[in-house]
Write a protein that binds this DNA or RNA. Structure first.
Lengths: 337, 337
DNA sequence: TGAACTCCATGAATCGATTCAGGAGAACTT
DNA sequence: AAGTTCTCCTGAATCGATTCATGGAGTTCA
């Protein structure tokens, strides 16, 4: 029995379509008798509400878009997971798009989700999306930036204090006796990276006798970490840093491989290593990886909650939610000796 | 300028709404002049098509649902990525749901996506979803099973030959000189796991003098791999297997950690290790991990393509697409000595 | 010239849920 | 008993894109 509409339910239950709609949307304004009759009819006919019609008429969508910049990074999957939980608890579905750090794809998804009349957009942006998002806002589609602080205050955002995180990571390295530190990360168009590096610089400036060098990567991936690790290992042992702060855990895992491959196990005695994000693979690495934990699912949950609030109130004032990252010290940064 | 409708475009361009619709959907049936005038009006007004209205009237949806059983497993993210590419090329958006191997969530997502009138459903199922999917099919919503062979032939499926994969993995272990093999995996409600184990059994039966033991895990996760690894390492060295075949790469990575932790580096000399899926973390592990590669993005692409074909033709005969996994031998299974 | 075709444009009807003005009937007031 | 208030229900109008029967204008051909 395909295509059971509210009209069929109304007929079956012997009430009007308006009543059926009320049973569905505000059952307390309907007599108990009608509610049970309509429920019965719904079960008998196997009625399923048509979201398209609902969206069209009510103008309110039960869909939220989530545009993620790297679907291969477990961190973002955890953020999505948090948003998902919060969404499904409200009967909202998530349209998912992975841009793979590609501006064209990013634009494409924003447009696509606009066509789909999403209730709002969560986005971990890669490029500069302010103009596009402003346009959406104009049309009543709010956006919340995820994992990216919105400096201009045009949009709400949920992120982590990357500067402070970078500082804490390097302070930890220094506290455990390291002095020749390298930051391995990039690309530096990404705000996350520049902030983490800036934090690292602060920590180093406060510590006399500690140096910081920068090893740039072109992506935040395991592969780039491996490549950077190979470059470091190509140096004479004397010229290598004694501690590495990786821009994120993927890079850190790549580095780690190069530092332990072939059983040489330089970590942690000769070189300490700390990452960022604390993805679940970090704890499970060959040498359990120290990392700066981001509250990933909480970020997702919070972002979704803020988004829905703003969807209800177009005049809402953008607010920036910033969590503090937390140092998770594991074996990869055990003190030397 | 919120809420620009096709009617506004028609007025602006000096044509009827029917013509605007035709420009949008079959421009070749419209005069070149009208096309440019309408295009101009669309640009001027910033018109964006309303998917809800389109879906309601045309009954055709530009949305596909993808229900995944473990959003934390990079393998599934790669499958999603494949489907995504294929979908966006056609202007189709993906509703994403992660069930986390939980039947309630699985049911919930199927219902939710039905309400959303998806054009079809891709699902990597956990529980028995045949009845629910049949219901959808009745309503004109086809489903394609992903990473799961559909024995009954009620639905199309795209998967990998797990039996053959299991056999190849163990044959490889045997060929590299191992004789005391353990399969580490579970839960065995999952068809993937039983098939891989069955394949392993076949390989062992053909090889005199080779034994196979089963170490059960309660999930296909890194954590379970670590736990199983700890149990194995608690045994006296003599009683340990000399080769491990992990049910998937997450389990393998967990095992690997326990086998190399503290610099003891048992892999590959004392114990060989092979996983399944060949996720990108496998190649980047401390000891690069041998694995049975699944063509993950191809699986996603193929599944989506079949789904769309079936959405166009309700009488389509279900077809089972089975790929062969491919052995990727890395250091973790180098021959001993 | 007129019949037969093409080519295109028109605009009302339609999809299904929601909304809301209007009203029936019961209950309560005075 | 008449007026007032409540509680529920009704059903037509509506959202915006698509469809399709209708028909006007221009071509071709006999």
């Amino acid at each position: 029995m395909p295509n059971v509409s509210i009209r069929d339910v109304a007929r079956q239950a012997g009430v009007s379509v308006g009543t059926v709609s009320n049973v569905l949307n505000r059952p307390d304004e309907v007599s108990a008798d009608s509610v049970t009759r309509v429920q019965q009819a719904i079960d008998d006919l196997g009625y399923v509400r048509n979201e398209a019609a609902r969206k069209l008429r009510a103008g309110v969508s039960a869909t939220v878009g989530f545009v993620v910049l790297n679907g291969q990074n477990p961190f973002f999957n955890e953020v999505v997971r948090g948003a998902e939980d919060e969404a499904t608890a409200r009967g909202i579905a998530i349209l998912y798009g992975n841009t793979d750090e590609n501006r064209t794809r990013e634009d494409m998804y924003i447009d696509l989700f606009e066509e789909h009349q999403v209730r709002g957009l969560l986005i971990a942006p890669f490029g500069d999306v302010n103009n596009r998002l402003s346009r959406l806002k104009h049309r009543g589609i709010p956006a919340v930036l995820v994992d990216r602080y919105s400096g201009e205050n045009r949009f709400s955002s949920v992120s982590v204090d990357n500067i402070s995180g970078g500082r804490m990571a390097v302070e930890h390295l220094i506290a455990t006796g390291r002095t020749r530190i390298a930051f391995v990360g990039g690309p530096f168009e990404m705000r996350q990276m520049t902030d983490r590096l800036a934090g690292a610089r602060v920590a180093v400036e406060d510590a006399p006798g500690v140096s910081l060098e920068v090893v740039a990567t072109s992506a935040m991936s395991v592969e780039e970490g491996i490549a950077a690790g190979a470059r470091l290992m190509a140096r004479p042992a004397r010229e290598r840093p004694d501690a590495l702060f990786a821009g994120n855990d993927l890079i850190a895992l790549g580095l780690l491989q190069q530092l332990v491959v072939g059983g040489r196990m330089l970590v942690p005695d000769e070189i300490a290593l700390i990452g960022f994000d604390d993805i679940s693979f970090a704890a499970a690495a060959a040498v359990p990886l120290s990392s700066m934990r981001q509250p990933s699912t909480t970020i997702g949950k919070t972002a979704l909650r803020i988004l829905l609030e703003e969807a209800g109130d177009t005049e809402a004032i953008p607010r920036q939610t910033v969590f503090q990252p937390e140092l998770v010290a594991r074996r990869s940064t055990s003190p030397t000796g």
